[in-house]
Simulated scan of single mutants.
Amino acid sequence: MSTLLDGALPPAQTPHLFGHAAAERFLAESYSSGKGHHAILIEGPEGIGKATLAFRFAYHVLTHPEPAEAPAMLSDPDPQSLVYRQIVSGASHNLLHLTRPLDEKTGREKSAITVEEVRRAGRFFSQTSGTGNWRIVIVDPADDLNRNAANALLKILEEPPRRALFLVLTHAPGKLLPTIRSRCLPLALRPLSPTHLAEALGALGVALPAARANEVLTAAKGSVAEALKLVNHGGLDILEAFGAILSKTDTAARKEMHRLADVLSAKDSGTIFDFFTALVETHVQDAARQAARAGEGARADRLASLSTALTEKLATAEAYNLDRKQTILSLIDAIRAER
């Protein structure tokens, strides 16, 4: 149960998918051929529609359980159909959505998909065996599996039950166990084009700020999730503040740094804090690549080392629940030192 961004719909309820017609056609045709793979690894950046595609394909399979009778293209789900209502309500006996569970004590999502969650898949298959129906598991995303959970999933993938389908989502396939990747058919999705991104936002009723529409579409890099963070969660203001801080002298920047850190460390600021940390990491990585292309080898090496150090600092801060404001200030200081 991932945190839903302001303006977004849960993937299971999203009526339309933009920009991935080729992937939809591939899934539909491979299924109708009767030779489809039992595990599909749907790859691509976060927020471009991977989960929506997975639920659309699950709806397609459960609506047309006999492959030979299924159409060769996915269609928008019928909100009045029993299959759709069961999927949306989480009451389908043939679909299991594995994601990070809630911590009963804190009410917040756990930091990983645990082995207990993957074991639910084993019970799911045993309870529905003998019905003859398809059984579909969506792992959303596999990047969140801890080591034990990943190994547990691997065991199921190695000996899949009959008429079982795994839709495994990943933002970073290179971080998955090679053995999991080797047992899945990869299906890579590309970021949305500006046109498709604008269409997707329009379908959600999200109005782009007229004066900054192009800025949003560019900065979002083809991701609906990033666009929503920019428009509805203050991301545009964070971008502007970060750029201003990097352009000012130490004395002039210090007050702006504290103001930004206060915003990012406020209560219930998790979404925008994550947006900022991703912004920081991307900024340093881009600077390292630019230095390398310019033949500035020493600076490129320093920036690459800084990127690794920042990632480790963020992981340590999260693991030990360190003061978020001080973490932000130290990140900015480290970046400013390498300008």
Score class of each variant (00 low, 15 high):
Glu240Ala: 15
Val118Tyr: 01
Arg119Gly: 03
Ala12Phe: 04
Leu228Ser: 01
Arg135Asn: 05
Ile332Asp: 03
Leu5Val: 08
Lys35Cys: 12
Ala319Phe: 14
Lys229Val: 05
Ala244Tyr: 08
Leu303Glu: 02
Phe124Thr: 01
Asp274Arg: 08
Pro178Met: 13
Glu46Trp: 07
Arg162Thr: 10
Val284His: 02
Asn133Thr: 07
Glu226Phe: 01
Leu260Ile: 06
Asn232Tyr: 11
Asp301Asn: 10
Ile40Ser: 00
Gln86Thr: 06
Leu96Cys: 02
Ala112Trp: 03
Pro178Leu: 13
Asp6Phe: 09
Val216Ala: 06
Ala203Tyr: 02
Glu158Thr: 12
Val88Asn: 00
Gln326Cys: 08
Thr311Trp: 04
Val280Asp: 01
Ser89Arg: 09
Leu201Met: 11
Arg259Val: 14
Met257Lys: 06
Ser247Val: 10
Asp103Val: 11
Leu236Glu: 04
Glu104Tyr: 06
Ile87Ala: 02
Ala210Thr: 12
Gly234Lys: 03
Lys155Trp: 11
Ala319Asp: 14
Arg212His: 09
Trp134Met: 01
Glu158Ala: 11
Ala188Thr: 13
Gln285Ser: 10
Ala150Ser: 13
Val224Met: 04
Gly297Arg: 05
Ser92Thr: 07
Ser2His: 05
Ala334Cys: 12
Ala315Gln: 15
Ala121Thr: 08
Ala149Ile: 06
Leu96Ile: 05
Ala266Glu: 13
Tyr84Ala: 07
Glu199Ser: 15
Ala252Gln: 13
Met73Phe: 12
Asp78Ile: 06
Gln86Asn: 12
Asp268Asn: 12
Asn148His: 14
Ala213Asn: 08
Leu17Gln: 04
Thr114Glu: 11
Ala291His: 06
Asp250Ala: 15
Ala28His: 00
Lys221Cys: 07
Arg254Glu: 04
Lys105Arg: 15
Gly295Pro: 02
Pro77Cys: 11
Met73Tyr: 10
Tyr320Thr: 09
Pro141Ser: 14
Ala203Gly: 05
Asp144Val: 05
Ser126His: 08
Glu159Lys: 10
Ala200Leu: 09
Arg302Ser: 12
Ala207Thr: 15
Leu264Asp: 01
Leu62Ala: 02
Pro11Gln: 05
Asn214Glu: 15
Leu157Lys: 03
Ala298Lys: 15
Pro67His: 02
Thr277Ala: 02
Glu24Cys: 14
Lys267Ser: 12
Arg324Leu: 12
Ala39Met: 10
Leu9His: 08
Asp262Tyr: 08
Met1His: 10
Thr271Met: 06
Leu322Thr: 08
Thr327Met: 10
Ala317Leu: 07
Ser129Cys: 04
Leu260Val: 05
Val118Phe: 04
Ala319Ser: 15
Met73Arg: 14
Val206Cys: 07
Val137Ile: 12
Ile272Phe: 04
Leu177Gln: 11
Pro79Ala: 13
Pro209Ile: 09
Asp268Val: 05
Gly34Tyr: 11
Asp76Arg: 09
Asp78Glu: 07
Ala252Val: 10
Ala244Gln: 15
Ala219Lys: 07
Leu96Glu: 00
Ser269His: 00
Leu4Ser: 12
Pro15Tyr: 09
Leu230Ile: 06
Ala292Phe: 08
Ala244Arg: 15
Asn321Leu: 11
Leu74Gly: 01
Pro67Val: 01
His16Asp: 13
Ala298Val: 15
Leu197Phe: 09
Ala241Trp: 02
Ala54His: 00
Ile48Leu: 13
Pro141Ile: 04
Ala337Val: 14
